[in-house]
């Protein structure tokens, strides 16, 4: 059994906006072992990015952590000061963002921006920093790294810039790499290249990855486990196989129905999920997905279901599962 790297317990984070409190993360718990690749899936506003950012203590105003514990690599992230967090960011945990076109500072050379992390977190001298930067560029597949170091972000294509972002993120060999929709802004062939690169580097360096995405295709190719988020909660968690083949939550089923499949008949229509996401300012008392759920029951509207554990690795919060559990228990009783 490998070591636990990240353990989030009952995290709550809210944005205190002028209109009221938005519970962006509402009682989220999950843990990751060293070397795991976890996918966090969900639609826009489901809290997946906010959850990942909070691992680095990167919550911008007016967001505030209001409860729970975040254990990462022996640190208590939720109790650390900004100064302590700075030593971890870019060092033990790194992040790559969605849009590589805007994520690099346009007025500094990429060499400068790579060396900046090395200067912050390592004791390398100037010469060693430069050598390391060249090594990193080579690692992420950029040719002529010596020449490229002196160039500015606008002299690179989108895919190249994302490679540079990865180089910056990996500079200090982090324990955890958070990838916040790293391929959304890239075209499909480049997407595949970047994903391949990430897996290759993961195997080389042995880090863990959290992959935030709404693309279930990406998740199935590189992740081992998946957390499905909806309205600030994890509604289902399991291995890739469990999520895809033993889907438990109605929302996850909806997500899977909305992906086009190569094997189906040509004129098969995709089924979108009806309705709109919940108003996070006034969340419903019960299950947040209830208003869009085709199997909604009375109890769903008034009470949030507990997690039902379907296997060691698979759990989901849905009243239908609770009901099944109950009836299963009753059946067993009847038999006995």
């Amino acid at each position: 059994m490998s070591k636990v790297l990240l353990d989030i317990r009952n995290e709550r984070l809210s944005f205190f906006t002028p209109a009221g409190e938005v519970k962006a993360i509402n009682d989220v718990s999950f843990s990751m072992n060293e070397g795991d690749v976890l996918g966090i899936v969900g639609e826009s506003g489901s809290g997946k990015s906010v959850t990942a950012y909070s691992i680095m203590g990167l919550n911008a105003e007016p967001g505030r952590l209001i409860g729970g514990e975040i254990h990462f690599n022996g640190h208590r992230i939720d109790q650390m000061s900004e100064r302590e967090l700075r030593k971890i960011r870019g060092n033990e945990v790194s992040i790559i963002f969605q849009d590589p076109m805007t994520s690099l500072n346009p007025v500094y050379t990429i060499g400068n921006q790579i060396v900046e992390v090395l200067r912050l977190h390592t004791h390398l001298n100037r010469k060693e920093q430069k050598a390391r930067a060249i090594e990193l560029l080579r690692l992420v597949g950029i040719s002529e790294p010596e020449k490229r170091l002196k160039q500015y972000p606008h002299e690179f294509s989108g895919g190249m810039r994302q490679r540079i972002m990865i180089a910056i993120a990996l500079a200090c060999e982090p324990k955890l790499l958070i990838a916040d929709e790293p391929t959304t802004a890239l075209d499909v062939t480049i997407q595949a290249q970047i994903l391949e690169l990430m897996i290759e580097l993961k195997n080389k360096i042995g880090m863990s990855i959290i992959m935030i995405t709404h693309d279930l295709g990406i998740v199935s190719t590189i992740c081992e486990k998946i957390a499905v988020m909806y309205a600030g909660k994890i509604v289902e968690y399991g291995t890739v196989d469990e999520i895809f083949y033993e889907t438990a939550h109605e929302y996850t089923k909806g997500l899977l129905r909305s992906i086009p499949k190569l094997t189906e008949k040509q004129h098969e229509k995709l089924v979108p999920i009806d309705g709109t996401p919940v108003d996070m300012l006034n969340p419903p008392a019960g299950c947040p997905f209830a208003s869009r759920c085709s199997s909604c029951m009375k109890i769903c509207l008034s009470q949030m279901p507990e997690y039902t554990h379907l296997s060691d690795t698979h759990y989901s919060a849905c009243w239908l599962l609770q009901k099944k559990e109950l009836t299963k228990g009753e059946e067993e009783e009847n038999r006995g």
Binding site: R86, I95, S103, V117
Partner: peptide, 13 residues
């Protein structure tokens, strides 16, 4: 801008 977030995520003061 996004690059400000990148700088923070790098651990820059």
């Amino acid at each position: 801008q996004d690059y400000m977030r990148t700088a923070r995520a790098k651990g820059v003061s």
